[in-house]
Computed example of a mutant assay.
Amino acid sequence: MTGQLTAARERVHDVDALRGFALLGIFIVNITFMASGYPGNLVADPAFSSTFDDIARRLSSVLVDMKFYLLFSFLFGYSFTLQMAAADRAGAAFAPRILRRIAGLFALGVLHILFLNGGDILTTYAVICLILFWMRGVSDRTALRVVAAVYGVVLLSMLASGLFMDTAAFLPPEAEALVNAERATQALLGGWGDIIGEHVAGLSLLVIQAVSMQGPTALAMFLLGMVAGRRRLLAQVGGDEAILRRIQWIGFPVGLAGGLIYTFGGGNGQTLAVAASVATAPLLAAAYVATLLRVMHSPRSAYVRAALAPAGRIALTNYLGQSALGLLVFTGIGIGLAGTFSPAATTGLALLIFALQLAASAWWLRRHQYGPAEWLLRWITNARRPAWRKR
């Protein structure tokens, strides 16, 4: 019995560790937008135009961009089934609990947009979770059909747009984009009014992105995660399954090829390049997951799970904390280093901050049941205040 409980805990830790890994990838992308106004305007900062800078940008584009939010979305859907199971164990009605949770997540997202980071995902997740809640009773087959349909519609719309529309006509000329990027960088160096104004000004783009691509693809991953959670796929991993190796053999070549097409085809400024990434990014994300599961279940590298799991267990706190630290490092409210970090330095800082979060998360969870944001969201979800410290 003790061995079974230990195995069950390890498998829950697998989910937490994967979430922690996804959190790192998301931060590597997000910090570039916190550090400068240039990425948001789809141009490179002329101050960092060396070959080394270009290599750093392209490595991130191939290996990281547009991959990790898909993994995070999949895990959100998987955790949705855990929320349902928790409500059942507590003998509580699921609907009011999850609707309160969605409302709390949306409110946190609005505050996050206004005060910390305009590139928020929480509000999108909250809205899409309403659809997931509505579809919670569908069969696995229906859910998978919807996944295929949603992803197919997104890809077809991108292909049609790329082939039959001049997407460049909707973008400002490079000279204008550079001016806009410099202005955005200077706004980051201002006070609260400048920063909030910049975040509010970006809301229309955030909504367009959420409606056209990020929302639908997140919904597809939510549903895929829900199906995986129902089947307890991540609770049955031993690390030596042949399917994990097959996922690696397929996912890495196809996913990396799509990443290269995306990167050298023009990135976010070219719809067909984005379509290549959207089509192949799930396979690369799956290959990352398969690799990490194999690593975490190897006796020689099981420490990787122990290191990542605490950060993933309090992922919401860490996600908000990353934005808060970005605000303090880069904006005029804090040190004011916006526009001074090269692409490689920005990635290095993300890795450093994440390493500190790993240590801080483990320390915090030795004394507390939940992270601060998780504690607040749990209070909203259950409509009663949870214990703050471990007993």
Results as ranks from 00 to 15, higher is better:
Leu163Cys: 07
Glu374Thr: 08
Gly77Ala: 04
Leu352Thr: 10
Leu189Cys: 11
Val146Lys: 05
Ala177His: 14
Thr280Arg: 08
Gly215Ala: 11
Leu155Trp: 05
Ser61Leu: 07
Trp134Met: 08
Ala257Cys: 09
Val150Cys: 10
Leu82Trp: 09
Gln4Ser: 15
Ile353Tyr: 10
Val62Leu: 10
Leu71Ile: 14
Val138Phe: 11
Leu82Arg: 13
Leu105Phe: 05
Ile333Trp: 13
Thr6Met: 14
Ala95Glu: 09
Gly202Ser: 13
Ser49Ala: 15
Thr217Phe: 03
Met66Ile: 07
Leu163Thr: 06
Ser139His: 08
Ala290Trp: 03
Gly321Val: 12
Met66Gly: 06
Gly312Asn: 02
Phe330Ser: 06
Ala56Asn: 08
Leu111Thr: 13
Leu206Cys: 00
Val138Gln: 00
Ala373Asp: 10
Val295Pro: 06
Arg145Asn: 14
Leu320Asp: 03
Ile26Pro: 04
Glu198Ala: 13
Asp54Tyr: 07
Leu18Phe: 10
Leu122Asp: 01
Ala92Thr: 08
Tyr151Ser: 07
Val329Glu: 04
Leu284Gln: 05
Ala355Arg: 00
Leu260Pro: 01
Gly332Asn: 12
Gln4Pro: 02
Val295Tyr: 09
Ala86Thr: 06
Pro372Arg: 05
Arg97Leu: 01
Ala103Cys: 12
Phe48Tyr: 12
Leu316Lys: 00
Ser79Gly: 15
Ala103Val: 15
Leu105His: 09
Pro372Gly: 07
Val64Arg: 10
Gly326Cys: 03
Leu337Phe: 09
Gly104Leu: 05
Gly259Val: 01
Arg9Tyr: 13
Gly162Asn: 03
Val289Asn: 03
Ala175Trp: 02
Gln4Arg: 11
Leu308Ile: 07
Phe21Ile: 09
Arg313Gly: 02
Trp192Cys: 00
Ala7Asn: 13
Ala311Val: 12
Gly238Pro: 06
Ser79Gln: 06
Ala338Thr: 11
Glu176Val: 09
Thr263Tyr: 04
Leu116Glu: 03
Arg11Pro: 11
Ile314Ser: 01
Asp45Glu: 04
Ser60Pro: 00
Val227Thr: 05
Asn318Gln: 12
Leu71Val: 09
Ser277Arg: 12
Leu337Val: 12
Arg136Val: 02
Gly229Asp: 03
Trp364His: 11
Leu178Gly: 09
Val200Gly: 13
His13Ile: 00
Pro172Ile: 00
Ser301Trp: 15
Trp364Arg: 01
Val289Arg: 02
Ala290Met: 13
Ala92Gly: 01
Leu144Ala: 10
Arg378Trp: 03
Thr317Pro: 08
Arg367Phe: 13
Val295Thr: 14
